[in-house]
Amino acid sequence: MAHLSLAAEPQFFRGASIQSKVLGFGLRHSVRPLLGLWARLPFDVFPPNVVDQVARLLPLHEGTKWRPVELRDCTSEWLQAKGVDVDGTVGAILYFHGGAFLTCGLNTHRRLVSRISYASKQPVLNVGYRQMPYEPITESIADGVDGFRWLMDRGYKAENITIAGDSAGGYLAFSVARAVMDEGWGRPAGVVAISPLLDFDPTGKQGHRNADRCQLFPMNAVARLSDVALRMDTRRGIAGTRTCPVDMPLGDMPPALIHIGSREVLMADAELMANRLVSAGVPCDLQVWDRQVHVFQAAASWLPEARVAIDEIGAFVQRLAEQEAALTPASRVATHKSREAKTAAVR
C-alpha cells in the first residue's frame, strides 16, 4: 500500500525549522538504532522506566498546578495550566501519555499536558495507566474508563470531556471513547490523537511509503511491539478479544483531530483511521506536519512547529466546547436522541 486514498483531504503544514531538522537527525542516529537493536534481540528486555523518573527534574510551563489522583488501579494527576479554572460546566480533557505501552508516564508528559491545558483553557486528568509487560492493554483501557468516570463524578458531562493522547495514548483515546459509549455514559466531546498507534497489525505499515523513512521507529521495532502485545494477551487468556481502534464500530464516534508527521511510520494508521471515520460520517481533521518527528509537540519549549500544533489542538477543543454550549435545550435533546439512535444502529 504505497498510499491510501483518503475520503477527506488532509491539511498539510509545510516547512521544517532548523530545530526540527536537528531533532530528526539526532533521533535517527541515536534512538532509532537502539530500537532496532531491541527488536533483534532473541529474548525480551524491558528496562525499568528510568526515563519517567528522570523527567521529574524537567521544568514546567509557568503557573501549572497539579495534584495526585488515586484511581482504582493507578495513580493519575489533576492538572491546571495558568489561568485555567476548574468548572464542571465548561469542560475537561482526559489525557493518555505515549510510550509504546512500555515506558514513559506522568512525569515525561506533564509539560506537554500543561501546554495543552493552557491552549485549550481546560483542566486535564493525566492518567498514569498500567502498562506492559506487567499488565495487558485491556487493563490500560480499563484505567482510562476509570478516569472518565472520575471526571463524571466531579460534575463533568460526557459531552464536555475531550479524550486525548499521543502515540500509544492515541490508541487509548479512541478505545476509551468507544468503551464509555458502550457503557451508555454518553458521547465524549471529541478525540485528539497525536502520532497515534491505532493498529497492531504491522502489514499496512510495512507496505506504506514511510516504512523506512521514520526518524524514530524502524519497522522491525513496530513488528516486535505487536508481537509483545499479542503474547501478553495470550498469557492472560484474552487473545483475540481486544479490538484495535481502526477496526471498531465508528459511526457514532465523536469528532476527531489527528496529528501526524509526514515521515512517520504511523502515518499508515493515521490515514486509515481518518479514512474510516470520514467514510462512517464522523468529522475528522487529519493534520500532516512536514518532516516532524513522532510526538514533536512534546518539544514545544524550543520547537516552533510544536507550539503551532498545540495551538491547533487548543482551538479544536475550544471549538467543541463552544458548539456544545451553543446548543439550545431542544436542539441538545434532538442531538442526543440522534446520537443514541446511531449508537443503537452501530451495536
Rank of each mutant, 00 (worst) to 15 (best):
A158Q: 05
A158F: 13
A158T: 07
A158W: 05
A158I: 10
A158S: 14
E159K: 15
E159S: 15
E159C: 15
E159A: 15
N160W: 11
N160V: 08
N160Q: 08
N160A: 05
I161C: 10
I161A: 13
I161W: 08
I161M: 13
I161V: 15
I161D: 12
I161S: 13
T162E: 10
I163Q: 00
I163M: 02
A164M: 09
A164N: 10
G165F: 08
G165C: 08
G165T: 05
D166W: 00
D166L: 07
D166V: 11
S167A: 09
S167D: 08
S167Q: 08
S167Y: 10
S167L: 10
A168W: 10
A168I: 11
A168T: 12
G169N: 05
G169M: 03
G169F: 05
G169A: 01
G169Q: 02
G170R: 03
Y171G: 07
Y171W: 12
Y171V: 09
L172Y: 02
L172P: 11
L172K: 08
L172Q: 02
A173Y: 04
A173T: 05
A173Q: 04
F174D: 11
F174E: 00
F174V: 13
F174G: 01
S175E: 01
S175N: 00
S175Q: 02
S175F: 02
S175K: 05
S175T: 00
V176G: 04
V176Y: 02
V176C: 02
V176H: 00
A177P: 06
A177T: 11
A177C: 06
A177H: 01
R178K: 14
R178V: 12
R178I: 14
R178H: 13
A179R: 10
A179W: 01
V180Q: 00
V180P: 02
V180K: 00
V180A: 04
V180H: 03
V180F: 03
M181W: 05
M181R: 09
D182W: 09
D182P: 12
D182R: 15
D182K: 12
D182G: 13
D182H: 13
E183V: 14
E183D: 14
E183I: 10
G184R: 05
G184D: 00
W185L: 15
W185P: 12
W185E: 14
W185G: 11
W185Q: 14
W185I: 14
W185F: 15
W185T: 14
G186F: 10
G186T: 08
G186E: 04
R187S: 15
R187C: 14
P188Q: 05
P188M: 07
P188A: 04
P188G: 04
P188H: 00
P188T: 07
P188V: 07
A189H: 09
A189K: 11
A189D: 13
G190I: 03
G190D: 05
G190S: 09
G190F: 01
V191L: 09
V191A: 06
V192W: 03
V192H: 09
V192R: 04
V192P: 09
V192E: 04
A193G: 06
A193T: 12
A193Y: 03
I194G: 10
I194V: 15
I194N: 08
I194S: 07
I194K: 04
I194M: 09
S195I: 02
S195K: 04
S195H: 03
S195A: 09
P196E: 07
P196G: 07
P196M: 06
P196L: 07
P196R: 04
